[in-house]
């Protein structure tokens, strides 16, 4: 474990805490894409299939359980909670997220880490995570005003994978000296998708003005 990866995991955890805080305190999920949240449930389940078969560390197991548990809880809130589900921006959250699944799955069949079920699903989850934020970014562009918690959530979510990239560079030079194409390229694509959001987020933060993404 290195500081960059720990910072990445903590940033990821913080993003989920901020989202749960927003939903629980404001009893609203306005501006949050249910489709992105559903994709994250798939990402975590297909990535952590080895949860009960491969013990890495207490930290690793605990975090996997937290990520799966919280992502399912968020989808439950947005779909089933009697108050929160009324606030879901259903007619703006229109990205056809199910269209992302077949290409990622086909890519996982073509370029798996190993040609075994768990490694194909692991690769699928890495590819899917790279594009899972698209419905959320589209929804942000449509939202007239983005509340601070939603903006912070997306910023932290983008920042976590950027920290993972630093972690990969660090590990390459200090530990593995191996190229890891699947997570590296997916991680770069994932972080690149946040590029314009980062630009407008940091600009709004510096100018103390409301965050607005150009349509």
């Amino acid at each position: 474990m290195n500081i960059f990866r720990l910072a990445g995991d903590m940033t990821h955890l913080l993003s989920i805490v901020v989202l749960l805080l927003k939903i629980r305190t404001t009893k609203s999920c306005a501006g949050i894409s249910l489709k992105t949240q559903e994709l994250y449930v798939i990402v975590f389940i297909t990535r952590y299939l080895d949860l009960f078969t491969r013990y890495v560390s207490f930290y690793n197991t605990a975090m996997k359980l937290v990520f799966i548990g919280t992502s399912v809880a968020i989808v439950w809130y947005m779909r089933l909670h009697k108050v929160v589900k009324q606030t879901y921006s259903r007619d703006e959250d229109t990205f056809k997220h199910y269209l992302l699944i077949p290409p990622c799955f086909i890519l996982a069949l073509l370029i798996p880490l190993e040609f075994t079920v768990t490694e194909i699903l692991w690769s699928f989850s890495i590819y899917l995570e790279a594009v899972a934020i698209l419905p959320q970014l589209l929804l942000l562009q449509r939202s007239s005003n983005i509340d601070n918690l939603t903006g912070s959530y997306v910023f932290l979510l983008g920042a976590y994978r950027a920290l993972y990239i630093v972690n990969w560079v660090y590990r390459f030079f200090t530990e593995t000296h191996k190229i890891r194409w699947i997570p590296w390229i997916s991680g770069l694509v994932q972080t690149a998708l946040y590029a314009d959001f980062f630009y407008y987020y940091i600009k709004s933060w510096k100018n103390h003005e409301k965050l607005r993404l150009p349509a």
Binding site: R5, D9, H12, D50, R54, V56, S57, N60, M63, K64, F67, L113, W122, Y164, N167, R171, E175, T176, K178, R180, I182, P183
Partner: peptide, 10 residues
């Protein structure tokens, strides 16, 4: 299997 470093990451 842990020789592949990526599987100790989340």
């Amino acid at each position: 299997p842990l020789d592949r470093p990526m599987h100790d990451e989340l």
